[in-house]
Design a binder for these strands. Structure first.
Length: 247
DNA sequence: AACGCCGCCAACCGCCTGCAA
DNA sequence: CTTGCAGGCGGTTGGCGGCGT
């Protein structure tokens, strides 16, 4: 038995939005908000559209903070890094890019970045579907290609200090297993001077972490009382790794 | 000029998740 | 605890425009 549709497809308009429809939707949301109910919104606004279609149109196109135009090299780097780290979690990736939507990021990846990907790098790109014992799995569902990074470290003399990952990984596992002893807010960078300070500059994660007083905002994964070493270290490692391969 | 191919991207589809009843 | 609904999300599609022949 299939799922019932969210609206009667025969009674709603589909296809591209007209400027008039955009104006109606924009005005309605700016004057009344979404009302917390997208399904009811088109009826209230006088639109013959499915509620989901209205939501998508607003989020991907009409929102005032939408950033239009091409992606910068820095944005490309962030997308590539995060994709290597967490796979196709486009909403999470988009949350790291001011004014970009998940649809934007997804389209950009599929049409541009995926083609730039070196073929030999294909095995290094993790999705959450191919995690295995050879990958490091963190509590935040981030999978790190340990062997790939390890091997790359050995063969390419990358300046990434992998030892810091081991320390942080063990701390993370210990904490999650014992369900106690929250992390203090000491940056791993402060504990290990061998990691270049500029390693975070592109992704801005370390800066964000400092700015937030040790709180890491990773889209939907807001860490509050404790620092998510696993996720951050995973991002750093993969960022370095993907940057090396990118060259 | 006409046609076909291809890339881009807006929009749709359907599954998953969270939450309220 | 179960069920149903709405929102959120990622995968996919289809239309359009640019470009080459």
């Amino acid at each position: 038995m299939g799922r019932s549709p969210c609206c009667d497809k025969t009674k709603v308009k589909r296809g591209p939005w007209s400027p008039e429809e955009d104006t109606i939707l924009r005005n309605h949301i700016q004057n009344h908000g979404t009302g917390g109910n997208w399904i009811a919104l088109p009826h209230k606004a006088g639109l013959k559209r499915c509620g989901k279609s209205c939501r998508l149109r607003w989020l991907n196109y009409l929102r005032p903070d939408i950033k239009l135009g091409g992606f910068t090299q820095e944005e490309d780097n962030i997308i590539s890094s995060l994709y290597a780290n967490i796979g196709s979690r486009w909403s999470v990736i988009a949350s790291h890019l001011q004014g970009r939507t998940d649809n934007d990021v997804k389209n950009h990846w599929n049409t541009k970045l995926k083609k730039k990907l070196p073929s030999h790098n294909s095995t290094a790109i993790n999705t959450n579907n191919n995690a295995s014992n050879s990958a490091m799995q963190f509590s935040s569902s981030v999978f790190l290609p340990k062997q790939e990074v390890d091997q790359h470290q050995i063969t390419n003399n990358s300046n990434f200090d992998y030892s810091i990952m081991n320390v942080s990984y063990q701390q993370q596992m210990t904490t999650s297993n014992s369900n106690s002893n929250s992390f203090n807010n000491t940056s791993p960078l402060q504990e290990n001077q061998s990691l270049p300070n500029n390693v975070f500059s592109t992704a801005n994660n370390y800066a964000s972490w400092c700015d937030n007083g040790g709180v890491m905002d990773l889209g939907g994964d807001l860490m509050t009382d404790e620092y998510d070493f696993g996720q951050m270290i995973g991002e750093v490692a993969n960022f370095n790794y993907s940057c090396q391969l990118w060259r």
